[in-house]
Amino acid sequence: MEEVLNVLPPYIVSKIKESVTASELNELEEIRLRVHRPTEVVLTSRSIMIDSIQLTQEESKRFLARISQHSVYRLEEELKRGFITLPGGHRIGLSGSVNIQDGMVKAISHVSSFNIRVARAIIGSAQMISPMIMDNHSNVLNTLIVGPPKTGKTTILRDIIRQISDAENGFQHHRVGLIDERNEIAATLNGIPQQPVGNRTDVMSDCPKAEGIIMMIRSMSPEVIVVDEIGHEKDSQGLLEAVYAGVKLICSVHGESIEDIQKRPSIQALIRERAIERFVFLDRLSPPGTVKNVYNHRFEEIKRAERIRSVQHEMDRHAAHPVHVHVGRNR
């Protein structure tokens, strides 16, 4: 939290603290700064608008220079990605006018909005899921985690990586290769992970998945490859190359049902080749991290909605009591 507050101008920090209680400050999820508009503070239980904080265009330029550490190179590179990573894994998303060159985003100019997202790793968020994605010898099964936005996919992936890497919660330890294309899982800063991803995990950040998978296999000989948000058919092809090389997979995709993912061109190859051994569906209606259904490679249900609660994730700060359910290994 201190890394977030330290990057903000002191008068903004002061006004935010005047607007929320000390306990609510611990529930801070986002601070959205918008030029010539009120600042929005997003907490667990509510969202408030602070009219007295409205960035001017000049203040926006100064803030952008501050968070990019006055580095022109870093500024150019991170404006292409649309976000800047802070120490601790916190991220500042950017929006404004986009410059296009040869059909590709070159940069975001005239930044008009900043979204400061507070990162909190939730150790143990995959505690209830892990037994469902390992075989009887505690080895990893190829797994696809499916859920709509804000159902905890990234948080759960991060904790699964940590558990596999450090041989926790029943797993045998494995070398993990994380292809973190959007730098959301490990949140590397100068190449160093800012989030807990385990001692045997090697990270390839800001790299396209398909290319990163091949590079990781060639250079680091991982036993497990992890990617977040499969979005293109070439991602699936890269993952299949990993399977053919004897590497296990953990990945995620947007969706709500079997029908959803069966229609997704991006994962057709994985489904056709029966490369995925476990499909874990997260529940939109329940708190993030709740398992709705689990299926095997033939889409036979092996675990139905018993509202298996993992742990709260970054966007879920409500008090909740986990339901501890014994999960038998039905394989």
Results as ranks from 00 to 15, higher is better:
residue 1 M to Y: 04
residue 2 E to V: 08
residue 9 P to H: 07
residue 18 E to K: 15
residue 18 E to P: 03
residue 32 R to V: 15
residue 42 V to I: 14
residue 47 S to C: 09
residue 47 S to M: 13
residue 48 I to E: 02
residue 61 K to D: 14
residue 70 H to N: 13
residue 72 V to M: 02
residue 77 E to T: 09
residue 80 K to N: 09
residue 80 K to R: 14
residue 91 R to I: 07
residue 91 R to M: 04
residue 91 R to G: 07
residue 91 R to E: 07
residue 100 I to V: 15
residue 109 S to K: 15
residue 120 R to H: 13
residue 121 A to M: 01
residue 125 S to E: 05
residue 126 A to L: 04
residue 136 N to D: 14
residue 148 P to E: 13
residue 153 K to Y: 11
residue 161 I to Y: 01
residue 162 R to W: 06
residue 165 S to V: 05
residue 168 E to V: 03
residue 168 E to D: 08
residue 177 G to E: 06
residue 177 G to F: 00
residue 179 I to C: 02
residue 180 D to T: 03
residue 181 E to F: 10
residue 193 P to R: 03
residue 201 T to I: 06
residue 206 D to Y: 08
residue 206 D to H: 11
residue 208 P to H: 02
residue 212 G to A: 06
residue 214 I to E: 13
residue 217 I to H: 04
residue 227 V to T: 08
residue 229 E to P: 02
residue 230 I to E: 03
residue 233 E to C: 00
residue 234 K to F: 07
residue 239 L to H: 05
residue 248 K to N: 09
residue 248 K to H: 09
residue 250 I to V: 12
residue 257 S to P: 12
residue 265 P to V: 10
residue 274 R to T: 04
residue 276 I to P: 01
residue 289 G to S: 03
residue 292 K to S: 12
residue 292 K to H: 04
residue 299 F to T: 00
residue 306 E to Q: 14
residue 308 I to R: 10
residue 320 A to F: 10
residue 324 H to C: 14
residue 325 V to K: 13
residue 328 G to D: 13
residue 329 R to C: 08
residue 331 R to P: 12
